[in-house]
Write a protein that binds this DNA or RNA. Sequence first.
DNA 1: TTCCTGACTTGATTTACATCAATGCTGTTT
DNA 2: AAACAGCATTGATGTAAATCAAGTCAGGAA
Lengths: 246, 246
Amino acid sequence: MQDMHLVHHECGDCPIRHRAVCARCETDELARLEQIKYYRSYQAGQTVIWSGDRMDFVASVVSGIATLTQTLEDGRRQMVGMLLPSDFVGRPGRATAAYDVTATTDLVMCCFRKKPFEDMMVTTPRVAQRLLEMTLDELDAAREWMLLLGRKTAREKIASLLGIIARRDASLRLKTPKGALIFDLPLTREEMADYLGLTLETVSRQISALKRDGVIHLDGKRHVTIPDFDRLMDEAGDDSDGGVLG
Amino acid sequence: MQDMHLVHHECGDCPIRHRAVCARCETDELARLEQIKYYRSYQAGQTVIWSGDRMDFVASVVSGIATLTQTLEDGRRQMVGMLLPSDFVGRPGRATAAYDVTATTDLVMCCFRKKPFEDMMVTTPRVAQRLLEMTLDELDAAREWMLLLGRKTAREKIASLLGIIARRDASLRLKTPKGALIFDLPLTREEMADYLGLTLETVSRQISALKRDGVIHLDGKRHVTIPDFDRLMDEAGDDSDGGVLG
DNA sequence: TTCCTGACTTGATTTACATCAATGCTGTTT
DNA sequence: AAACAGCATTGATGTAAATCAAGTCAGGAA
């Protein structure tokens, strides 16, 4: 992976997404962040931090995927966040982690010690403003996710998740064979189940059903082809009228 | 209701919660907000705004309760937010509403025209910083809610919701008869169902079950007594170790 | 090659909740 | 006082997804 650290997203590579900090247009702010940054790497499956643990840094995903999960006493697990490159982890003003953070793929994060980062938020308003935008985006995503968890059927849940992954992948690759989307699932069946509030068996059955009905193709267990994205979206049950920015 | 507009929460009354704007300690900022504020009132049941509608203001709840809901094509509804006094509605930088906003009780909101408010966010970093804190709190609440929607049983969902309402009420009243909590449900059974991802019949049945088992008392349909809050929380199924700030 | 392991699939059965359908309350209208 | 409307309760039945239980399949180690 190229060095994605702290340069402008619209220039291709900024973990604190565009506008907050930019190597080209905000060199002074960048310089301040440079002084407190460091990297951490994790292998697929490793836990980054446990809920309740002391957390003396905030961070930004450079490459790979991390998940946030919550667990009930008896072990029931619910994923509550999926962090992709450029997403932010950690909360300024909080001393301990509120969720389990796990690397589901190999993961590189760019970390900032909390205290200096917080100081910088005060002296550099633009960082707080950018963080606000990102947090509002996450809140919207969380609310979309709540609709999925509370009201969608298993089939709709699977279709929605495939849509989310496909869209993200498309935005990374920017180029797709005519109409069809192709990608590898970055999650196991169990992780998908934790995302969707289902069991892994139900996930498996519904994927088989979508395959049987020609909505998706599967090559092996992970390699997915979506021949008709609109068809998939019909299966997702979402409100018809455009997106949030309609 | 007293005039709750734009003074310090810790002094009893601030719709943009404490620290951002305070009549006593931040008079200059207050003055700027004063110039662009106005009030709106709604009756219980009225819709404040529909998802997709143009929204040229942001606002803060002064009194009453508003809900945010999302709807699927076929009418399935999921509540995704419950706004209490001091909570913020609307998103700087977005032109249209992303959710249906409804007054579930009589409601008064303090509004700010979007453009001047956004200008002020740039010139007054403290407002953006405070908004960030509030949004992060909301995100945490949303994630807690996701765990509820995805993994809790109907009984646990009801117990959790009663706990949430009881806690909020306790924090408003600051005083409770020895041990027992007493409050009126601000939601209909159907609204509770939309909150919890259930049907109203299931809500009704589970409330009856909790009553039968002595976890709660009901006087009429809305007036609730919680004789033992810890007992209720056991029913909610949550992780044992303290709160987020443990 | 065989064995093993972890991820996945598929089948049989159970169950929690949804759905369909009365019926009961409480307050308001006339 | 009767009639009505809006909420809430309760019962009977149906069903989507969970649970329990075998398998299958691909990759890695011995």
